[in-house]
Amino acid sequence: MKILTCPLNGPRNISEFTYGGEHHSMPDPNTTDSRAWAEHVFFHDNAAGIVTEWWCHSASSFWFLAERNTITDEVIRTFEASEIYNQRIDFVAASTVEGS
């Protein structure tokens, strides 16, 4: 059983966590072409090497990110999502913005 270190709760058995998939930025859904969108949704990089992944500590529902080497299964570091997402994200419609 691997140990994963939650930035909030410290080192815990990995069975306390839920895997949330690879982390990658969403392309602009209103401007990106169909192919790029399909790749975003359906394709995974599945890279051999260091990848960034979403993990959630189930007991505290705390989401964070982990850098993991998929070749050695070594977790290099874990960090809070706010390190990447540090400001509010807004979406604007491609053509007209809904007046609400």
């Binding site: 839920t18 949330g20 979403w54 959630c56 529902s61 989401w63 999502a81 706010s82 997402y85 540090n86 400001q87 509010r88 994200i89």
Partner: peptide, 19 residues
């Protein structure tokens, strides 16, 4: 619930989500 939290970890909207 987990999915809501994950999205808002990215969007950072001014809300609280509680199950």
């Amino acid at each position: 619930y987990q999915s809501m939290l994950k999205w808002n970890a990215q969007w950072r909207l001014d809300i609280d989500i509680a199950n």
